[in-house]
């Protein structure tokens, strides 16, 4: 459990970090919370030539609404999601998920940016960001770009992030009236990867029908999965038992799980449906002004 030797840099600005990433050209890894990276290095499964520690870069840790978006800085700690009054009120899916991420020791260090861009299908925030229709803001040698999160996850540990780019911010469309969101997850033990998780985001119109919907899944495929057919089936419909149940069934169809120690594939698929339904129920209650 001892990693091979590596170089260590602690830049004080995004530009400095990007310059380092460029210099190592794919051989460096960004260190934020380190709760996924350090174990991989100790197991010698990851052997980066250098670590670029972004924890000393100012102004990367924030949660704020600005214009049309909620902005969350990349080094915002998971625990900050739990503590934010704004999120509890308007984006409750994020505190829901944060509460499910490991334990307080991990949440105090693990970052939103790391969770979102690591590319592990067991991470909880990717499904939340997919359901919320988030965008990712990156800075690279060629400047800044904004990517829809729906185009971000390519395969397990493979994302659209270039190895010379740094994720600096996650942007979520600003919450509206009659919007509700929720995250549900089951795990064998706290801190274990999810057996399955489901994220739901519902916006109701004035008549109480579903105006827009986002449904996404954790841990049941090579990446977090956006269940577009499931959410599509809700749009324009009354969020009644029949429609929510149908959407939950479609979410199960979208799952692409493997059998492993957490259960056989058919169980995980069934859990994707069960949890989607529970997340939808909770999101709906919140959209209607309940808890």
């Amino acid at each position: 459990m001892i990693p091979p030797a590596f170089e260590y840099y602690a830049p004080h600005s995004v530009d400095e970090a990007v310059a380092l990433l460029r210099r190592f050209n794919g051989e460096a890894k960004v260190l934020a919370g380190g709760h996924s990276l350090i174990p991989l290095m100790k197991l010698r499964l990851a052997e980066p030539a250098a670590l670029i520690d972004i924890n000393r870069i100012p102004n990367l840790s924030f949660i704020q609404e600005e214009g049309t978006h909620l902005r969350i800085g990349a080094t915002t700690r998971t625990n900050d999601l739990l503590d934010s009054e704004l999120l509890r009120r308007s984006y409750p899916i994020l505190p829901d998920a944060a509460q499910e991420i490991a334990d307080p020791l991990v949440r105090n260090l693990g970052t939103v940016g790391g969770n979102v861009c690591h590319g592990d299908p067991g991470n909880d925030l990717p499904a939340c960001m997919l359901a919320l229709g988030a965008e990712l803001v990156t800075v690279g040698p060629k400047g800044s770009r904004t990517l829809p999160v729906s185009d971000f996850y390519k395969d397990t540990f493979v994302t659209a992030l270039d190895p010379t780019e740094l994720l600096v911010e996650v942007r979520v469309p600003k919450a509206r009236a009659r919007q509700g969101s929720a995250y549900q997850k089951i795990e064998k033990r706290v801190g274990d990867f999810a057996i399955a998780g489901a994220a739901a985001n519902l916006l109701l119109d004035a008549s109480g029908r579903v105006e827009t919907a986002g449904i996404a899944l954790t841990g049941v495929g090579p990446t977090a999965i956006l269940a577009s057919a499931a959410s599509g089936a809700l749009v324009g419909q009354s969020p009644d038992d029949q429609h929510l149940g149908h959407a939950a069934t479609l979410a199960g169809t979208a799952a692409d799980p493997n059998s492993d120690l957490r259960g056989p594939a058919e169980y995980k698929r069934a859990m994707a449906s069960v949890l989607t339904r529970r997340a939808l129920d909770r999101a709906l209650a919140r959209a209607r002004g309940g808890g």
Binding site: P39, L43, D103, K188, R189, V190, G191, D192, L261
Partner: peptide, 16 residues
């Protein structure tokens, strides 16, 4: 081996 690290060998925590 499956269960050769504490990522797979699930020792209960205070939560469970």
């Amino acid at each position: 081996i499956h269960g050769g690290s504490f990522m797979e060998y699930l020792v209960p925590t205070a939560v469970e």
